[in-house]
Design a protein around this nucleic acid. Structure first.
Length: 589
RNA sequence: GCCCUUGUAGUUUAAUGGAUAGAACACCAGCCUUCUAAGCUGGUUAUGGAGGUUCGAUUCCUCCCGAGGGCACCA
């Protein structure tokens, strides 16, 4: 990035660091500066501990020396020593002026960065969104969707070309059970193409969804638990499916279509972007071929009737790639999936998988085997702890899942009620639209605000709350800023006395705003959407403080114009922050 | 048994070796004739335990305790 295009916060950090370097006589990096614990101490702080070691001097003395050497300039108001720290205070007007112009200059691209020349060609694949067909999409999937979507936005903002992919289990035991139970329940005696068709026709249109199929699956599981002898029947169904028996295949294909169609609409609703949807059924047979190749290459071997790759030397145990009955399993298909991805996207050099932490060990094994097969590009596992209910883990076979639709409707009901009581004169359409935005904001923010390494115990009461650290809190701050602009009939523009802005809350708002690009970069580099969520809350708090302290519409014309530009910039930054998390900002709420 | 993750106010959490451990929810007390009170202000409450490394430890190391997960025919 050239100096011209540098974000203002980078420039300020660089300037302050170079002033400090000059004063200290050694290089001080901009990374050495942190925010002081208390805003009235200043805006940037530099701890002299390391210098104390190299200079063999008391850090407090060094701080004193450095502080006296840092002279005020266009942006620096003063530097003071406070114990072992040098605290630098920035000029309110100068900072606000620069920050506002920074946002105005970059507009919707504020926070984005171009890749350097050498990296430009880099494509990155990100796999997320792995719900199975014939099962419900439930709140456990949501964390994956939201983290994945946010990472796609973050990585794209940093110049990566991202290929988002999804992967779905559309074959396997859960499908066989579901279909077996469906036929059994209908008491079909002679299962043929014809009866399969009749059976499908009998399912009413409103039942052709995962709720219906999921209920069948859970019913099958219950029955099999009571009567384990029936497992043979299920095995038979599975064999018939693998042998492409026409009647069973028909039933499979049609029910699978219901699932996939529903998934498509859910993905659209949630903003889950997918460029290539991979299905287990398309990698099952290729996976078996890979197992044969691995046997030939002596990478794999027979053990206890099954085929394994021994990874004990790498302390990764044994990796099972074919069952002793000759059928495939998850690993079989994943080997082929990796190969297929590479074949279809040869430019991809980096591959990210967003999957819950329970599968961490499994993927370490998989990556190792792929490495032995000659895979060169980097594969990264972006893990997160999974979502459980207070009563324990959700499982389709137990039938205790909270589906996306039920959760959505519950939060939507709350959002609609709250919106209605506040805006009695709004049209039904406007209330619905606003409630929808708030529901999305509430749900997405709630799952993205904490780091991935913490398990989430789902609590509906907490999930529908719109107070405090929540999406609607941030959305609200943005709409209040918008309301000022609306009342002022602000259409954008230049001018106004930006450098005369002198309120502390204006400075704090401008400061937080200016730091956005650095937060975005950190969030992308560390795969931590939570950093964006936290920035959003801070920015909203700063906005609310400003809203409280500064009466924009009553200001003198020159100041009013400057303040309107600040308001417009702050609102823009908030919208961008929420946008990275996939959260819409309503005009009013 | 071995391995991984994790333990911070009543609850959900932040701080990846630095200043007085920062928020939010809940609770209590205030603030709407004033750009939307889904807001703002104030108050009470926290690093699981014991050692060690360090000028300095929530952070790093060791042990113990608790929670969750994984470790061959599930996905």
């Amino acid at each position: 990035m050239t100096n011209e295009n540098m974000y203002i916060w980078d420039k300020i950090l660089k300037d302050v660091a170079s002033a400090a370097s000059k004063a200290a006589g050694v290089k001080v990096s901009s990374h050495d500066f942190v925010a002081p614990p208390n805003p009235n101490m200043g805006d940037l702080a530099f701890g002299c501990f390391r210098l104390a070691k190299t200079k063999k001097k008391n850090p407090a003395e060094i701080a004193k020396d450095i502080a006296s050497e840092i002279k005020p300039n266009k942006i620096i108001e003063k530097a003071e020593a406070a114990g072992p720290y040098v605290n630098v205070t920035l000029k309110i007007g100068a900072l606000a002026d620069l920050a506002i112009k920074d946002v105005e200059k970059h507009g919707e691209k504020f926070g984005r960065r171009a890749k350097s020349e050498g990296q430009r060609a880099n494509e990155l694949m990100l796999e997320y969104a792995q719900p199975n067909t014939h099962k419900e999409v439930h709140i456990g999937h949501l964390r994956n969707f939201f983290i994945g979507s946010a990472l796609i936005n973050l990585l794209e903002s940093q110049g990566w070309k991202v290929v988002p992919t999804s992967y779905h289990g559309d074959v396997g035991a859960h499908v066989s059970k579901c279909l077996w139970f469906m036929v059994r329940k209908a008491k079909v005696k002679d299962f043929t193409n014809k009866t399969a068709e009749a059976l499908l026709k009998k399912v009413p249109a409103e039942d052709r969804n995962s709720r219906y199929l999921g209920a069948l699956y859970s019913g099958a599981s219950k029955l099999l638990h009571e009567k384990p002898d029936l497992k043979d029947e299920v095995s038979e169904v599975q064999n018939k499916l693998e042998a492409k028996d026409p009647a069973w295949t028909k039933l499979w294909n049609e029910t699978r279509k219901w699932s996939l169609a529903e998934m498509k609409s859910i993905f659209k609703e949630l903003g889950v972007k997918v460029e290539r949807q991979y299905l287990e059924s398309e990698v099952q047979d290729p996976g078996q071929k890979i197992v044969d190749q691995l046997l030939k290459k002596k990478i794999a071997k027979k053990s206890k009737g099954a085929i394994i790759v021994d990874l004990e030397k790498k302390k990764l145990g044994v990796f099972l790639i074919r069952k002793s009955d000759g059928t495939s399993l998850y690993a079989t298909k994943d080997l082929a999936l990796a190969q297929l991805k590479l074949k279809e996207y040869p430019k991809v050099k980096r591959s990210l998988l967003v999957i819950d932490n329970r599968q961490d060990f499994y993927f370490q094994q998989l990556f190792e085997v792929l490495k032995q097969m000659g895979f060169k590009h980097t594969m990264e596992f972006v893990g997160y702890e999974f979502v459980t209910l207070k009563s324990g883990a959700m499982a389709s076979r137990e039938g205790n899942v909270v589906t996306w639709q039920d959760f959505r409707d519950e939060v939507l009901k709350f959002a609609t009620k709250e919106t209605k009581t506040r805006h009695k004169d709004w049209s039904k359409k406007k209330i619905e639209q606003t409630a929808w935005d708030l529901m999305m904001g509430g749900i997405k923010f709630n799952m993205l605000k904490q780091d991935g390494d913490k398990a989430i115990v789902f609590d509906i009461k907490q999930a529908v709350s719109f107070d405090g650290d929540t999406g609607p809190y941030v959305q609200y701050a943005a709409t209040r800023l918008g309301s000022i602009l609306r009342k002022a009939a602000w259409k954008g523009g230049t001018g106004g006395s930006l450098s005369e802005l002198d309120q502390l809350s204006e400075k704090r708002l401008a400061l937080t705003m200016a730091q956005f690009p650095n937060v975005v970069r950190a969030a992308a580099e560390e795969s931590r959407p939570s950093l964006i969520a936290r920035w959003c809350v801070e920015m909203a708090t700063r906005s609310n403080e400003f809203y409280r302290d500064v009466k924009v519409l009553e200001s003198e014309p020159g100041l009013k114009k400057a303040r309107l530009r600040l308001v417009a910039s702050a609102r823009q930054a908030l919208i961008l922050g929420l946008g990275l998390l996939g959260i819409p900002t309503p005009e009013e709420m």
